[in-house]
Computed example of a mutant assay.
Amino acid sequence: MARARAADGGAPTMRDVAARAGVSAMTVSRVLKDDPGVGADTRTRVLAAVDALGYRRNENARSLRLGGASGLVGLVVTNLANPFYSRLALGVQEVLSAHGLRVLLSNTGEHAERERDVVTDLVAHQVDGMIVVPAGSSQSHLAPAAVHHMPVVLASRPPAGMDADCVLVDDFGGAEEGTRQLISDGHRRIGFLGNPPVIYTGAERFRGYWAAHEAAGLQPDEQFVRRGLTDVAAAEAAARAILGAADAPTALFCTNNRMSQGAIRAVHALGRPVAIAGFDDFELSDVLGVLGVPLTIVAYDADEVGRRAARLLLERIGQAAGTGQAARRTVVPTRVIRYGAAPA
C-alpha cells in the first residue's frame, strides 16, 4: 500500500505524525521511547500514523540533542579507484560495525582542499572520530584544536607537523626487498615507475628501490626513472618510453598496482621479455604469471591496515578527553610473492 506523504511533500516529521494521530509531538516522542505512561489507544494511533507516513527518527540528530555519541565515524581516503582503499574500508567497517558504529566514506581524489572541506563537514556533524588518508603535506586541519579534539587516526601516511595515531605499511622495506629480488635474479638495469614523490608512499618506495641498488653496489640509471605517475595510462606510456630506449632495462619496479598494470600492458604491446616487480597484489596477477609475464609482487594485508586503524580509533573514542597515551604508530609488514619465472 502506498504511504501517505508529509504535508509539504518532503520527508515526514514528528509533527506530521502528531497531526495525523491527533496528539502532540511530545506524545509521539513518548510513544517512540516506549514510555509506559502512554495509553494503549494513543499508542496504537501514533504507531499507525508512523507506519502510514513512513516516518523514521533521525537518530543522529536525536543523539546530538541529548549530548550523546552519533554512532558515526568518518573515513576519508584519496582514491577509491585504487583497490587498496576499498580493502582498507572493508577492514575499518569490519571492526567498527562489530561495535555498533557506522562508517561515512569520502573520497578526496588526492586534493588537499577537498580533504579540508570533508573534514570540516565531519566535524560539523559531530562524528565520533575520523580515519584519514591525508592528501597533502599540510595537516593543520587535522590537529586536535582544529577538530575540537575529536579522535583522529591516520592511515597509509604518517602525521606531519602534528601528533596522531597512524597505521603504515612497510613501504621502504617492501620496495627494498622487491628490488633486491630483481637484482638477485640477475637484473642490473631496472627501471622505476612511481607515483608523485610528494606522497609518502611514493617517496618511501623510491627510497627502498634506491637502497637495494646501493646495497648491491649498483647505481640506478636515472633516465629510466619516472616519478609523478597517477594512473594506468600514464604508467603504460612511461613504460613504453623506457623500454623503447637503447640499452633498455630488463626489469621494472612499480610503486603500486596501477603502475604495475600499466607496465604489464606496455610489456605485452612490445612483446619483449621484461620482468616486473611492484607493490600491491591485484586480481589475476597469479594468472599473468602463468601466462608468461614474470611478476614479483610486494604484498600486504590491506584489510589489516583498516582493522588496525579502527582499533586505534575505538581506543581513543573510549578515552576521556585530555587523557590517554602518546600518539602511536603501527606498521603492517609486507611479503614478496613470485608469479611465473623471472629470468634476467
Results as ranks from 00 to 15, higher is better:
M1N: 07
R3M: 15
A4P: 00
A4D: 14
R5Q: 14
R5N: 08
A6T: 03
D8G: 06
G9M: 12
R15W: 02
R20K: 10
R20Q: 14
A21I: 02
V23H: 11
M26N: 13
M26F: 11
R30F: 11
V31A: 13
K33T: 11
D34C: 01
D35Y: 08
A49R: 04
V50H: 10
R57G: 14
N58L: 04
S63I: 01
L64Q: 12
L64F: 10
L72H: 13
V73C: 05
L75K: 09
N79V: 00
A81F: 02
L88Q: 13
A89E: 07
E94G: 01
A98R: 15
A98Q: 15
L101C: 02
L105Q: 13
G109H: 02
H111F: 02
A112Q: 14
E115G: 06
R116D: 07
D117K: 09
D128Q: 05
D128C: 05
M130P: 08
I131G: 09
P134K: 12
A135D: 04
A135E: 03
G136M: 09
S137F: 01
S137H: 12
S138E: 15
S138H: 14
S140Y: 08
A143M: 06
A146S: 15
H149Y: 14
H149P: 01
P151L: 04
P151G: 07
P151Q: 10
P151I: 08
V152F: 08
P158L: 05
A160C: 04
G161K: 08
D163A: 14
C166W: 05
G174H: 11
A175F: 11
A175G: 11
T179I: 09
R180Y: 04
Q181I: 04
S184M: 02
R188Y: 05
R188A: 11
I190Q: 05
L193Y: 13
N195D: 10
V198F: 11
A203T: 12
A203Q: 15
A203I: 00
E204T: 01
R205Y: 06
R207I: 00
G208M: 06
W210M: 03
A216M: 05
L218I: 02
R227W: 06
R227P: 00
T230M: 06
A233K: 06
A239P: 09
R240H: 13
A241S: 14
A241D: 15
A246I: 00
A246E: 15
T250F: 05
A251L: 07
L252M: 09
C254Q: 11
T255Y: 03
N256V: 07
S260P: 01
R265A: 15
V274K: 03
V274N: 03
D280N: 13
D281G: 07
D281H: 02
F282L: 09
S285V: 06
V287A: 12
L291T: 00
G292Y: 02
G292M: 02
V293A: 01
P294H: 04
T296G: 13
I297C: 03
I297Q: 03
A299L: 01
Y300A: 08
D301R: 03
E304F: 07
R307P: 10
A310Q: 12
L312W: 07
L313E: 10
R316H: 07
I317S: 04
I317W: 02
I317A: 01
Q319F: 00
A320G: 07
T323F: 00
V331A: 03
P333V: 08
T334N: 10
T334W: 13
R335Q: 15
R335P: 00
V336C: 09
G340L: 10
